[in-house]
Each structure stands twice: as C-alpha cells, then as structure tokens.
C-alpha cells in the first residue's frame, strides 16, 4: 500500500505547493490518515489532490465552488460505480429477467 508524506505528495504533483495542500486539508477537501507518527496520504488522496489542483488551475475553482464540484463529482462517480455494478449483475441474469426489467424501466421512464 503506497503512502505519501506531505513532502512526497508535493513532489509527486506538479501544481501542488505546501500552502495549497494545507489549504485543501483545512477545507477538508482532502483528509490524510492520522497516526501517532504524523499524517500520510493514500493513493486515493494523491489522485484526489491531483484533481483538486487541476480544477484549481484549469477552471480557477476556489473554496466553495471547488467544494461543490467535488461533492457533485463524488456523488456522480459513486453512482456510476453503483450503476456499473447493477448492470453487471443484470447482464448475468437470464434473458427473460432482463427483458422484464427492461420493460419496467421503459414504463417508468416513459419511452
């Protein structure tokens, strides 16, 4: 399991600076793992900070706007993951079941 210290994280991400990381942590947009020997960052944190930097740099998003976008993205990615799991499960069902579910969905969605 890869772990990064704050310094390693800053070295790994082009647009990341110490004040920026501190700000993201203070805003609780990224949450390092705590232990009695300090804070460390996981791969998921690395990827998240990378995205935060890119939203900050490329879109000029700050604080509230950044927070809102991340909340929506978390929800969207999470739902996409759930949808994929649901579809994978459905794909393994017999044709008859899938047809019944398809029909129900079409009725609900009105097309």
């Amino acid at each position: 399991m890869t772990r990064y210290t704050a310094d390693e994280l800053i070295a790994a991400i082009e647009d990341l600076t110490r004040p920026r990381l501190t700000h993201y942590v203070e805003m609780r947009m990224v949450s390092p793992v705590i232990s009695d020997h300090g804070e460390t960052y996981r791969e998921v944190d690395r990827a998240r900070v990378q995205l935060l930097c890119s939203l900050t740099e490329d879109y000029g998003l700050r604080d509230d706007a950044l927070h809102m976008v991340m909340t929506v993205l978390d929800e969207m990615h999470g739902m996409r993951g759930e949808m994929q799991a649901l579809m994978a499960a459905l794909a393994e069902e017999p044709d008859e079941t899938r047809e019944r579910v398809t029909l129900r969905i079409r009725q609900r969605r009105g097309h």
């Binding site: 998921v44 990827a47 991340m70 909340t71 978390d74 929800e75 990615h77 999470g78 993951g81 994929q84």
Partner: peptide, 19 residues
C-alpha cells in the same frame, strides 16, 4: 496513473458523503 475516478467509483471511497 490512476485517476481519482478509478477510486471514486469503488464502493469504499472515503470521500463519498451520501448514497
């Protein structure tokens, strides 16, 4: 490189607030 999405789509994403 793994993008945030690769983690965020998983069930255990620590940053997901509500589902």
């Amino acid at each position: 490189q793994q993008y945030y999405r690769d983690f965020a789509e998983r069930g255990e994403n620590p940053y997901r607030q509500y589902s």
